[in-house]
Design a protein around this nucleic acid. Structure first.
Length: 800
RNA sequence: GCCUGAGUGGUGGAAUUGGUAGACGCGUUGGACUCAAAAUCCAAUGAUAGCAAUAUCGUGUCGGUUCAAGUCCGACCUCAGGCACCA
């Protein structure tokens, strides 16, 4: 037997030469589309965590082909964006060169795993042939008024020198480098993603994402229902509109608060008497980072607006208005009605500023804290006596609408998507600014707008894209009127390329369209999409939004792009800590393949534990899987010329086929491997096994360990190559045991086991149970109250 | 604070969804083979007591339902993830 490395090479070449994994766009077979998130080809190379999900989906894809499906399982490279750019800057190589090199390394690493990928559909998001269509789709957003430029106070990372979306700067630190994020005002391209908030929630019903992904998305979108209420301001004509989820507490409103950025301040700066202190407060708020401002349990600060007085529309009482940074301009209306008796933040603020606290719901102790629970309404005019929050809210909203002082309103936390990056290494935004025509789309025939080939691509301190300095690129003519004009110099975020890439695999080399209608219709939804939990909100929401938009303008056949979404657990270093360079516990998959073989690595990664849970790496565990594979090889020496299954093995073979089949369907690879180990243990008890015994074992093991199983199948002349064979079938009748050992309990404690036959009647089983030695010990001198017989499972004798 | 998950031997993890807890692997111990080591093979391996048959305890904690609970119900503790001054 030649060594594993040669075997791996031999079969990888065979698969490639025979094109066995190339998917057919015109097949009569049923289609199935698997995808694992494409990687960033970073300089660090492949991680054993990649191998986990790649192997899992590969195993599923291989099995699905054996089940007769036309399977699409492609891979590509997400190569734009900050990591690739930073790598390039650090190593003083042009990003396009660095990316090419990294892809080459990554690809050879991925290939060494022996994945059944259709490489004919490979592409990188940085290929002009690909990003031409990313730009083209951006122009669709632009055409439909879905892209707009706005001055935004943006999160700015002074280290990466770029603007970041809220998504990329959670916790007040830059997602990429960990540096503290600052606030800067910048003109940015935005996509109207918030328009899709409701559809993004509703659409989840058409998916079977795992629950934690659905809830993560729903939390992120942050839907809340309530009402907008118009408060008159005594000194002005304009109402101050607030948003509240608790209109039922309207009678308890004793003050109002507006965000520091609220326009009411500037509009009324002539009436307001204390503009100095207000301006000072605004300045302070501006200098705080988004993170500082949103810190929970921070002391409440604020300034009373002297000269403006609110009027509670339902009691007509005059109430003070404050400015405070605990109210955000980018949510609701940027103004709130404060009910200190029943809202903790308002309570805190009222205590600090000595404002009245009027309870309107019975319960709690208002001297100590706000009461947010349910109870009987008091001091509340039309609501008095109601005891249920829901009913009170309904009644109040109806009243507000009738009296035209408010209306029902739903709000979402989801914001529009900041789509500009002041970076070199991204898709250029294909727009031109003309003094006469304004922002104008580059003509379709002029796409793609290529990145210029220059030496200096490092970010600038001015906050402008490095592209801005390249005048020969910036200066162009207006596509509409032909006058001199300037290109947009911002590029797209790296989420852009990954927001539609699964569509491109359907028709990867089409130079007329992003994908043909025919291909889009044939492949339809992506059936099975695997990726990290870190992408459960951002990437997945962007991609769904993008696809829903394409659907709404008639470019794709499905509103929801993904049917199933699963997430693999992380692989930690030995001892359960995260793998990191600084700890020196990073396991390189290439080293593992070198020492143990690709099949052993694959088997171990599937056997290591529950696919969705994180798990610690163990090289001894990997070695155990190598030993298992060695035993699979050795059992070949026992193969006889006999046909059919060995009689003694027949039952367990059928059971194992059933078990492995079910386990694959449920992503329970660990127990699939374990049942194969059990089957092999049984084979080893035999003096010889038949060709069919061996062949069925190798077929079941093939999706996980494709190289060695093909080799053994060929060596012992067992039949067609496994990659061209069908998945074995089992006979349900043969999975049922004639004879079985079951437990006998006395008062719920196991005291003996008995052998029963499938045909045994309940009485026979009772008889056998009562006659078991140790059962007699525990039942003699006692009164038998009842005997419970669960057929084929257990007997429980209740005695007194 | 709110929303998801999850807590099982020395260890990674099983458990037909209420029916023999600890499958399978790793590790450990003993044995075989070997001059020796590695590899391989055989046996044992939750804790306590016992030569043994066996008994008692045991799935984060405390209660409950049931003939029977790792699994269901109630309260709590811990960990991981998501959201968070979002009105």
């Amino acid at each position: 037997m030649s060594n594993y490395k040669e075997i791996e090479k031999k079969w990888q070449k065979y698969w490639e030469d025979e094109k066995v994994f190339e998917a057919d766009n015109h097949s009569k077979k049923e289609k199935y589309y698997y995808l694992v998130e494409f990687p960033y080809p970073s300089g660090a190379g492949l991680h054993v965590g990649h191998c986990r999900s790649y192997t899992a989906l590969d195993a599923l894809a291989r099995k699905k082909r054996m089940n007769g499906y036309n399977v699409l399982f492609p891979m590509g490279w997400d190569a734009f964006g900050a990591p690739a750019e930073q790598y390039a800057i650090k190593n003083h190589i042009h990003p396009s060169v660095a990316v090419k090199e990294n892809i080459k390394t990554f690809k050879s690493q991925v290939k060494s795993l022996g994945l059944s990928i259709d490489w004919s559909r490979e592409f990188a998001t940085t290929d002009p042939e690909y990003y031409k269509w990313t730009q083209w789709q951006f122009l669709k957003f632009f055409e439909h008024g879905m892209a707009y430029k706005a001055k935004k106070n943006i999160n700015w990372c002074p280290n990466c020198k770029t603007g970041l979306s809220n998504e990329d700067s959670s916790g007040g630190v830059c997602e990429r480098c960990g540096h503290t994020v600052e606030q800067r005002e910048k003109e940015q391209w935005m996509l109207r993603m918030s328009d899709y908030a409701e559809d993004l929630i509703k659409g989840l019903d058409d998916t079977d994402f795992i629950e934690r992904i659905k809830t993560a998305q729903i939390n992120w979108i942050g839907k809340s229902t309530g009402a907008e209420v118009n408060f008159k301001v005594k000194e002005t004509k304009e109402d101050l509109v607030v948003y509240t989820t608790r209109p039922d507490t309207l009678y308890g409103v004793t003050f109002m608060v507006v965000a520091p950025e609220h326009p009411i301040i500037d509009k009324n700066k002539d009436i307001i008497k204390n503009m100095d202190s207000i301006n000072k407060y605004k300045e302070e708020a501006k200098n705080k980072t988004e993170f500082e401002r949103t810190q929970v349990n921070k002391d409440k600060t604020g300034v009373k607006i002297e000269g403006l007085t609110g009027i509670n529309p339902i009691t007509n009482k005059e109430i003070p208005i404050y400015i405070s940074d605990y109210v955000m301009m980018n949510y609701g209306t940027g103004a709130i009605m404060a009910v200190p008796a029943h809202d903790e933040r308002d309570y805190e603020f009222a205590k600090k500023f000595g404002i009245d606290i009027i309870p309107v719901i019975k319960g709690g102790d208002i001297n100590k804290s706000a009461y947010t629970g349910d109870g009987e309404m008091i001091n509340s005019g039309i609501l008095n006596g109601l005891t249920n929050k829901k009913d009170s809210i309904e009644k109040m909203i109806n009243y507000l609408e009738k009296e035209k002082i408010g209306n029902r309103k739903t709000n979402y936390k989801l914001q529009d998507w900041i789509f500009s990056r002041q970076r070199f290494w991204g898709e250029p935004i294909p727009l031109v600014y003309c003094d006469d025509c304004g922002w104008t789309a580059v003509k379709e025939e002029d796409l793609p707008v290529l990145l210029p080939d220059v030496a200096n691509y490092e970010p600038t301190d001015t906050g402008e894209s490095p592209l801005a300095a390249i005048t020969h690129w910036v200066n162009t003519t207006c596509p509409k009127c032909g006058k001199p004009a300037k290109r947009e110099t911002d590029t797209m975020p790296n989420w852009a390329g990954s927001s539609w890439y699964w569509l491109r695999y359907m028709d990867a080399h089409n130079d007329k369209e992003f994908a043909s209608k025919e291909a889009l219709n044939y492949w339809g939804k992506l059936d099975f999409y695997n990726g990290g939990m870190e992408h459960a909100t951002r990437h997945l929401l962007y991609a769904r939004f993008w696809n829903q938009f394409l659907y709404n303008i008639g470019l794709v056949p499905n509103k929801e792009p993904f049917k199933t979404r699963v997430s693999h657990g992380m692989i930690l270093g030995e001892g359960g800590v995260k793998m990191s360079k600084s700890l020196g516990n990073v396991v390189n998959p290439n080293d593992m393949i070198e020492e143990y073989g690709a099949d052993a690595l694959r088997t171990y990664e599937m056997f290591i534990g529950d696919y969705e849970k994180e798990v610690a790496w163990s090289e001894q565990g990997l070695n155990g899987c190598k030993r298992f594979i060695d035993r699979v090889v050795r059992i070949g020496e026992k193969v006889s010329d006999k046909k059919g299954y060995t009689k003694e093995l027949e039952s367990i073979i059928h059971k194992t086929i059933k078990k492995v089949t079910d386990d694959f369907d449920n992503m329970k690879f660990n127990t699939a491997v374990s049942s194969l180990m059990i089957l092999l243990n049984k084979y080893e008890e035999q003096n010889e096994i038949t060709k069919d015994d061996y062949r069925v074992f190798l077929t079941l093991f093939n999706p996980i360990a494709p190289h060695i199983t093909e080799e053994l199948n060929e060596k012992y002349d067992l039949g067609d190559p496994l990659c061209k064979s069908t998945w074995p079938k089992y006979d349900e009748a043969k999975t049922i045991d004639e004879e079985k050992e079951i437990a006998v309990q006395v008062n719920g404690k196991v005291r003996a086991t008995i052998k029963i036959n499938v045909n045994d009647t309940e009485d026979v089983i009772k008889e056998k149970a009562l006659q078991a030695d140790n059962v007699i010990n525990h039942t003699k001198d006692k009164e038998i109250i009842k005997i419970i017989v669960i057929k084929g499972k257990i007997v429980n004798i209740v005695v007194k």
